[in-house]
């Protein structure tokens, strides 16, 4: 009950702040772009779109949302109700996950992209979306305003995005397997390209572990800097 209340509020909040309209427009733009691209480029372009925007939108927005909630003193009043911090974090993650998934599916269907390994793909999309929202929360807890959030988060964000170089074929190293983004890229890419079962299993399991790591970090940082600030 508390969790569903929180999720529905977060979704309505996102709706009122234009998220759903913006992603409707963006999804259509992506569909148009994908439809005009030559066939052999479609899948890597799709992976790129998912990775830089649709799947990681939680990271992009969560800083501003937490700052707004803190600025309007909503956070402090939420935590003098029976709402648990875990429920709060879960609600933030799930609300973005829903937007990510909807937008991704609309683009897939709208651009009529042939799909394989769909369950692997969805697993990767869901966990990745959650991971990058939590990743953003880790940095949002100490940020003073939106620009500050991006300054804090962008360095680390760019660093963990290094495996993108491998995806673009510019530079690759096995070390990239230590990055959560490598697993994300694999599982976003499986709908168009063949990967070994080992690679898929590795990506699926490591994403689960990364989710737990970032959930712990986000919980710890939020507890320390926002909920009990002393």
């Amino acid at each position: 009950m508390r969790l569903t209340t929180a999720i529905s509020q977060d979704m309505r909040f996102q709706f009122r702040h234009g998220f759903y309209y913006v992603y409707a427009i963006l999804s259509v733009m992506y569909i148009v772009v994908l439809r005009f691209l030559p066939d052999e480029m479609v899948h890597s372009a799709l992976t790129l779109i998912l990775f830089t925007d649709i799947c990681t939108l939680g990271f992009f927005f969560i800083g501003a949302i937490i700052l707004l909630e803190r600025g309007q003193n909503i956070t402090e009043s939420l935590f003098v109700t029976p709402l648990r911090l875990s429920e709060y974090l879960l609600s933030k993650s799930i609300s973005f996950l829903i937007l990510s998934t909807l937008s991704a599916l609309i683009v897939l269907v709208g651009a009529a992209i042939p799909v394989q390994n769909f369950l692997w793909f969805i697993w990767g999309l869901i966990l990745s979306s959650v991971i990058y929202t939590l990743f953003g929360i880790v940095f949002a807890t100490k940020a003073k305003h939106v620009n500050d959030y991006f300054v804090r988060a962008l360095g680390m964000g760019l660093f963990i995005s290094l495996p993108l170089l491998g995806h673009l074929g510019l530079f690759d190293t096995p070390l990239f397997y230590l990055f959560p983004t490598k697993s994300t890229l694999i599982l976003l890419d499986v709908i168009g390209n063949a990967y070994s079962l080992t690679a898929k299993l590795y990506a699926a399991i490591s994403l689960l572990l990364w989710t737990l790591v970032f959930a712990y970090l986000a919980y710890y940082r939020f507890e320390k800097h926002v909920r009990h600030p002393a």
Binding site: R12, R16, Q72, E76, S77, P82
Partner: peptide, 27 residues
């Protein structure tokens, strides 16, 4: 029950929406 000095409510939501939202947290 706690009322902080600075009011803390969702500004893009109506008074009733805010109250209904918060009341759903209680068993």
């Amino acid at each position: 029950g706690v009322a902080f000095e600075t009011p803390n409510l969702y500004s893009k939501f109506t008074a009733l929406e805010n109250l209904n939202f918060f009341s759903n947290f209680y068993a």
